[in-house]
């Protein structure tokens, strides 16, 4: 910014140089923006897929009567049994399709889209963070259980299911951080262009 102010006082030739460097900044910003959007697309898509294919069937010993030996009953854990996970998959799918759409919009290079894209990025940050919070809270409940309300832990039985959920949440958390970075970078870019 100081650089810009110095150029402001300089001759017309220098001012033209300043225009060129501004264009270079714009180009590099657009490249970085596209790269981050691609990254967000991949991360949220993989988060949605990893949780969306999450399924585990296990034989659980159930004792009906004390005198009889324990009966092995197959128990199934699927991702859509918990509403927090449904929310997670839906928001990740929305974020992933929006990332693809916004890539197209920013490739089109129209200036009018910039504030709209930033506002929707912001909404994506809120959506993704809330779904991550919900899934993490339910996941922690699965790992730890809650003795106060007699919710038993389920991860000692469904170990693969829980680990896959943790991976999906971690991926989506990275994706939402990328969206957060996108908003911050857009604000920085606006700030560079203003004044």
């Amino acid at each position: 910014m100081n650089n810009m102010e110095a150029q402001q006082k300089a001759s017309a030739f220098d001012v033209m140089n300043g225009t060129e460097s501004q264009g270079a900044i714009n180009r590099s910003w657009r490249k970085g923006d596209l790269f981050l959007r691609g990254l967000a697309l991949i991360l949220t898509l993989s988060g949605a897929i990893v949780l969306g294919v999450n399924k585990q069937t296990k034989l659980v010993p159930v004792k009906i009567l004390d005198s009889l030996p324990a009966l092995n009953v197959p128990a199934e854990a699927k991702w859509h049994y918990l509403s927090a996970f449904v929310y997670f998959v839906v928001t990740n799918a929305i974020a992933c399709s929006y990332a693809a759409l916004s890539m197209l919009l920013s490739l089109s290079g129209k200036k009018g889209f910039v504030p709209i894209i930033m506002i929707i990025d912001l909404l994506m940050v809120a959506l993704l963070f809330s779904s991550n919070g919900a899934s993490t809270a339910i996941g922690v409940m699965g790992y730890e259980g809650n003795s106060h309300v007699r919710w038993n832990k389920v991860c000692d039985v469904f170990d693969k299911f829980c680990n896959q959920t943790a991976v999906a949440v971690a991926l989506s958390l990275l994706g939402s951080t990328v969206f957060l970075l996108l908003v911050v970078l857009a604000a920085l870019h606006l700030n560079k262009n203003s004044k």
Partner: peptide, 10 residues
């Protein structure tokens, strides 16, 4: 948002 989501889920 994460806190709201976590509490909402639970």
């Amino acid at each position: 948002a994460a806190a709201t989501g976590a509490s909402g889920g639970v």
